[in-house]
Amino acid sequence: MSVPILECVDVHAAYGRIEVLRGVDLKVPRGAVVALLGPNGGGKSTLLKVISGQMEKTSGHVHMAGVNVHGASADDLARLGLTTIPEGRSVFPNLTVEENLLLMSYAGVAPDKVFDTAYSYFPRLHERRYQLAGTMSGGEQQMLAMARALTSDPALLLLDELSMGLAPLIVDELYETVAKIAESGVSILCVEQFARTALRVSDYAAVMTGGRVVATGEPNEINEIMADVILGGAA
């Protein structure tokens, strides 16, 4: 078996006295899409913060492509091929669409190529290229955020709650993009509250509650237990 693109071994992290991650073990095989599901407060977003270098872990190891990344800063990792789309609208609201795209070239792809890829994939962004990102609709903003995943040619893509606050059809569109990125061979770890939506595009799924991964498996196995996990045993 080849070395996984991402491997977390017994990762612990805490906000002060409160431990949020209590020994997370998780693997993302090269080229696979892994959905990370679970209720709020389960530690999903915190795990992504640790992996992306935004938060320090208290113990454990994170390996990327077999290399132990310890103490690497978020911007170092970003330039080395890790693209993170954080929760919420991860665009700069007071910059125009084009300026947002320009900044995406920091990840290492030439600006012209960034523009080409983004506009050919999302023509809507081309129409709005001189508009301030903050004045666009939520869906359009998320499109712009996804453009970074498309254009930065990452080795590993981390997606956090892509669908938050968006209408179902738009969520659908966004996940088509995710599927397309996956086809190009990018490994993806996506955190999602809408289990069914995420499971449609994923190869594997993991469920986190209480700061641990409590179940892993194929999408259909996980799908069956999700209603219980989210809406409570009675649902």
Binding site: A167, V171, D172, R196, L231, A235
Partner: peptide
């Protein structure tokens, strides 16, 4: 609320595209 399909969908997302399209229409 527990029996409401809309609610389940709101929490779990949509199983297929037709489902999502229906929902957007309703909304």
């Amino acid at each position: 609320i527990r029996a409401n399909k809309l609610v389940q969908k709101a929490y779990l997302g949509y199983a297929d595209e037709a489902d999502a399209a229906d929902e957007t229409k309703v909304m």
